[in-house]
Design a protein around this nucleic acid. Structure first.
Length: 619
DNA sequence: TTTAGGG
DNA sequence: CCCTAAA
């Protein structure tokens, strides 16, 4: 059995407030104290031997740390819920997540190894676990220690706690997801949709909690009934006073996410608020012409044949042959899998002038320097080598893997400043990173692993807890990921939220406000996703509502969400219709900052606008 | 730069 | 998702 402990080597005391330095945590040796973002996560197994943690664990913990950190900020800011928080945080300052249950379970019986592995997959720091006695039952304990504060994360949500009673619009009925009625299999689907990966856990309760946490972006899942409604957990059994506390705290609480987002992004663009105001004003002044333009947009554009794409493709191809270093990680991933991808010489220590972060990996007794990035593979549950081997027709197996790793140059090097920035910007504990565990060393002798103790982990991409996606960094802050990253349920919900608030088409607004913490989603992504949602929502017959459509296990977008998408779409289509009702509409929304094009459903918008101003007040 | 739309 | 054209 092993405990997961966090060994932190931050010279800034960055996470001090999380209380991580308490007894359970082993501070790393001072030698690593140079890099502010470097910290080590290790497991301690029975012998007291230290085992390097997987990147998964690292990143997950990192995310939680970040969360924790920001939450404490919030507490300081809102003051309101200080009382309850202090009660719920464990002595060590860490929330007692399901880690304790997972650990104690796996201790008891080895029938639970599956769970353990799943736990490792999910990795949550078990800092709160007390040193010797570990028998925490799986009963309600876990959630009870968590904060309620971050429950209503959906800032400005149309069904915010403050507005619930006065909400006449559709949002009241939609976006409700009941986890209770789902089978394990369905829960798995939802889990996958929520976190973008599979899980093997069969514990319903665990799954529900986990999903609930993901959907609400919250740790407040103490309830035994899991009904997610508009990103908030609805507790049917009101055995907990927390909910009431929440309601009592009123509006301030509900804008937590915006707060979080703003906190997280305030370094990047701490002018957001003013920008927003400006933007809205501009919009207000322009809405007349915007509507006009809308009509014109209706006509499809004619597209010139694009040669460039083809040219680029072929160019890249030839580059590969000529041995030129390929800047883009594009061809390095699992995409082409052509043998040449593995045959390239191991020399790309620096690429395009960027320095590459390397880490010491050990394999077969030899330590090799490999870039510490792209060990992670997005969106696929990490399995083991055998799974990986299937990707190599040549059967090169490990060797190929190693070489490949040697070439996987991320290149996203940032100075420490931006590194910190990035770390600050992290959020979304959901979506744990997927690690590219080619590391057969995992299965190799434990002694080898000892060498990894020197492992210096630098967050490769920085972004939002998990940019394991191949990214192509642009010098000025822009990291453009390449290829697919699955949309999680909560993201979708956010998107819907955003569209309902700001209107479809205001993608940059939505991106900046609702997706401030998801730096990997560009406005274009939002647009695309919305398009897909529309397609999905209209393609599907409205008959099967309530449950997830199980046609496509891969994409269990709850019908409720689709329904809402459809409504929004219809609404906005209506709103952008001819001018016959112009006068009426503008009268209806009088003085609002929204373009009248989006003014139907005024109540909702009013509420959102309200929330916006509230948020501004808080900041 | 942002948005719309095709692929 | 990626890419481009248009605004």
């Amino acid at each position: 059995m092993e405990k997961v402990v966090e060994a932190e080597g931050s010279d800034e005391g960055k996470f001090e407030e999380t209380g991580l330095e308490t007894s359970n945590f082993v501070l790393s040796s001072p030698k690593n104290v140079t890099d502010p973002v470097v910290y080590k996560l290790v497991r301690v197994d029975g012998n007291g031997r230290l085992v390097p943690a997987t990147d998964d664990e690292l990143m997950e913990v990192e995310g939680l740390l970040e969360n924790e950190k920001r939450e404490t900020h919030i507490v300081a800011d809102t003051g309101q819920a200080l009382g309850c928080i202090s009660n719920e945080v464990s002595p060590s300052g860490m929330p007692q997540l399901e880690s304790s249950e997972g650990l104690s379970q796996s201790e008891n019986t080895e029938a639970d190894t599956e769970k353990l592995s799943a736990y490792l997959e999910e990795t949550v720091p078990s800092g709160a676990k007390s040193s010797s006695d570990d028998h925490v039952t799986q009963s309600g304990r876990v959630g009870e220690c968590l904060k309620p504060l971050d429950g209503p994360l959906e800032g400005g949500s149309s069904t915010s706690t403050g507005c619930i009673s006065s909400k006449p619009d559709f949002s009241k009925l939609k976006g409700e997801i009941c986890l209770d009625n789902l089978s394990i299999k369905e829960l798995h689907e939802v889990f996958k949709a929520t976190f973008g990966r599979d899980t093997t856990v069969k514990d319903k309760l665990w799954l529900k909690r986990r999903i609930a946490m993901g959907l609400t972006n919250s740790c407040d899942v103490s309830a035994t009934t899991f009904v997610i409604k508009d990103n908030k957990l609805v507790k049917k059994d009101n055995e907990d006073g927390f909910n009431n506390v929440n309601l009592g705290a009123g509006k301030e609480v509900e804008y937590n996410e915006d707060l979080l987002n703003n906190l997280s992004s305030q370094i990047d663009d701490h002018q957001t608020t003013s920008e927003v105001r400006l933007g809205n004003n501009v919009v207000e002044n322009n809405f007349a012409s915007e509507d006009l333009a809308a009509d014109q947009r209706a006509a499809k554009r004619v597209r010139k044949p694009t040669k460039r794409y083809i040219e680029e493709l072929s160019e890249a191809e030839s580059k590969e042959y000529s041995g030129r270093s390929i800047a883009s990680t594009k061809s390095i991933g699992f995409r082409p899998l052509s043998s040449k991808a593995h045959a390239r010489p191991a020399r790309n220590v620096s690429l395009e002038g960027r320095t590459v972060i390397t880490r010491l990996d050990s394999l077969g007794g030899f330590g090799i320097q490999v870039p510490c990035v792209y060990r992670i593979r997005r969106s696929r549950p990490r399995k083991n080598v055998t799974a990986l081997l299937k990707f190599h027709p040549s059967g090169m197996g490990m060797t190929a893997t190693i070489i490949k790793k040697g070439f996987d140059v991320h290149g996203s090097q940032m100075d420490n400043g931006s590194m910190n920035k990035v770390l600050e910007a992290k959020s979304t504990p959901e979506q744990a990173p997927e690690q590219f565990v080619a590391e057969s060393k995992k299965e190799t002798t434990p002694t080898d692993m000892g060498q990894n103790m020197g492992l210096k982990y630098v967050d490769p991409s920085g972004d939002t807890s998990d940019d394991n996606v191949v990214t192509v960094p642009t010098e000025k802050g822009g990291i453009r990921r390449k290829h697919h990253r699955a949309w999680t349920l909560s993201e979708v919900m956010k998107l819907v939220e955003g569209v309902s608030k700001y209107g479809a088409g205001r993608w940059s607004e939505i991106k900046r406000l609702a997706f401030a913490s998801y730096s990997y989603r560009t406005s274009v992504d939002l647009k695309d996703k919305w398009r897909n949602l529309l397609k999905a929502s209209f393609a599907q017959t409205p008959t099967d509502k309530g449950a997830n459509s199980r046609k496509h296990p891969s994409m269990p977008i709850p019908a409720s969400i689709l329904l809402r998408v459809r409504e929004l779409a219809e609404m906005q289509a209506q709103a952008s219709l001819p001018n016959l009702s112009t006068g009426k509409l503008s009268a209806c929304g009088g003085g609002s900052e929204w373009p009248f094009k989006y003014k139907l459903g005024t109540c909702d918008l009013t509420c959102s606008a309200d929330s916006q101003s509230s948020r501004f007040q808080m900041l």
